[in-house]
Amino acid sequence: MLKTRTWILLFAAAALALGLLSWRLLGTPVEGTVVEVVQDGVVLREIDLSAVREAYSFVVTWPDGGSNTVLVEPGRICVAEADCPDGLCVRQGWLSDRGAPLVCLPHRLVIRLKGEGALDGVSR
C-alpha cells in the first residue's frame, strides 16, 4: 500500500492542520458574560458574571457520588475543587481565559458561555 514516507507526510500535514485549528478554537476567548452551569444536560444555574460583585462559591454534587466546588468571582468562574478521578476541571482554570467550556467528564458537568444572553436589553 502506501509507502512509509507517504504516511509520514500525510500525518504531518494533518497534525499541522489540527494544531492550527485547535489553537484558533481554544486560544481565542469567547465574548460574553452570561455562563451556564450544566449537569447531565440540565441547566442548574445561569450566572451573569458582569453582575457579580462579591466572590462566592457553590457545590454541585453528582448523584452517584462526588462533587465540584464552583467559584464565582466578578467577571470570571472556575472549578475550585473537585473529587473527580482526573481533576481536569480544576486544572482548566478560569473560563474567561479560554475559548472552550470547562468540562468535568466524570461528573457530567459543563460550564459554558451562553452566547446571546449577554445582552442587557434590545432596542427595537
Binding site: 497534525a15 467550556p101 468540562v103
Partner: peptide
C-alpha cells in the same frame, strides 16, 4: 452523555493528541 455540543471545540485537539 453531556448532551451538549459545546465540548466539540476540543475535537481537533483530541484528534491531534491521538496522533
Amino acid at each position: 452523555i453531556l448532551r451538549t455540543t459545546a465540548v466539540a471545540v476540543y475535537f481537533p485537539a483530541l484528534l491531534l493528541s491521538g496522533m
